[in-house]
């Protein structure tokens, strides 16, 4: 009944990229669709693509209405351009949030990693640690998920893989105390990047959001401007709840960037479009697998291209 996507999103990303390279500025879709009329079927097809990518009904209607208006005003009269205009609109929205994380040339840069349960926070920390190390920076990770069973051990494995030190305490210790220790140690050793792993938490739990605030306060006391980045790790399979997540983590924990994980699956993570449009949170990275190297900077064009790529393409 439902078309099964056999190709992962990341493969599409790669292909999307190749495609743009190969045909330069012509779009394969546009070539194929060149003969098509602008009719209801075409609108329906595009609308379906957006909804199925988790862009969400309200935002999808908004995008489609814009295009419809343009057609009505006769600014747009070729079917082959319709798709392109839609893509361009989406790219423009995302482009505004395409902002890679830049580590300043001196000082200790602190990154607190937050998100709901199971999105890939700890794994992303492993990947980030690896990346910063490769850039020649000294890195330290703080095991501030003192709640989930074996969370500390999990982080330790990733730290070992990335060859960076871990600051830890016992399970159930105060996460703010772990963060304090980590920042002390970072100051003493002039560490360039500190990555703080926090326990997964639903954005609706007031007391757990308070805990994040407390950690922030401790960090701010120890290092000027800390945390310098609060990275929200979001799972690309998330549907419209992603908006609530982003909103609450932004309001309560001061999120300054997003990493969208699991894009090696078939989910397209379209809710990020709504997040970009409504909340304008910078999108830093995408996660595309379970090993150290599977982290990429977020690229708006690539993302939109992959969102429209059809199964098996």
């Amino acid at each position: 009944m439902i078309g099964l996507g056999k190709t992962g999103f990341f493969d599409r990303l790669k292909k999307g990229l190749e495609k743009t390279r190969k045909v330069l500025f012509t779009d394969i879709d546009d070539l194929i669709l060149g003969e098509k009329k602008i009719d209801q079927a075409l609108f329906d097809e595009l609308e379906e693509a957006l909804i199925r990518a988790d862009v969400g009904p309200v935002f999808t209607m908004e995008l489609m209405d814009r295009i419809r208006d343009q057609v009505k005003r006769k600014e747009l009269d070729r079917a082959d351009l319709l798709r392109k205009v839609l893509k361009d609109t989406m790219t423009a929205i995302l482009k505004g949030c395409e902002a890679p994380l830049v580590i300043p040339p001196a000082g200790t840069f602190t990154i607190m990693v937050v998100g709901v349960n199971g999105t890939g926070k700890t794994t992303t920390i492993g990947k980030l640690a690896h990346q910063f190390r490769n850039e020649g920076l000294t890195v330290l990770v703080a095991a501030a998920d003192t709640f989930r069973a074996a969370a500390i051990e999990q982080l330790e494995v990733w730290a070992r893989r990335a060859a960076v030190p871990v600051i830890r305490q016992k399970i159930n210790a105060d996460p703010a105390a772990v963060v304090f220790d980590a920042l002390q140690s970072a100051k003493a050793g002039a560490t360039r990047v500190v990555l703080v792993d926090t326990a997964g938490r639903l954005h609706t739990k007031v007391n757990l959001m308070e805990e994040l605030k407390k950690m922030r306060r401790v960090m701010a006391r120890e290092i000027e401007g800390a945390p310098h980045e609060v990275l929200l790790v979001m799972d690309a399979t998330t549907g419209q709840n992603g908006i609530a997540q982003a909103k609450m983590f932004k309001e309560e924990a001061g999120v300054t960037g997003i990493c969208l994980t699991k894009l090696d699956g078939t989910a397209k993570g379209g809710v990020i479009l709504r997040i970009a449009g409504e909340l304008r949170i910078p999108i830093r990275y995408i996660g595309v697998g379970e090993s150290l190297e599977d982290l990429r900077p977020f690229r708006a064009e690539e993302f939109v291209e992959a969102l429209f790529a059809r199964d098996g393409e």
Partner: peptide
Amino acid sequence: ADAMTGQEAVNVAVR
């Protein structure tokens, strides 16, 4: 299945 899953939930489960 995670209650927060979006449109792909079905494809995943079907597989």
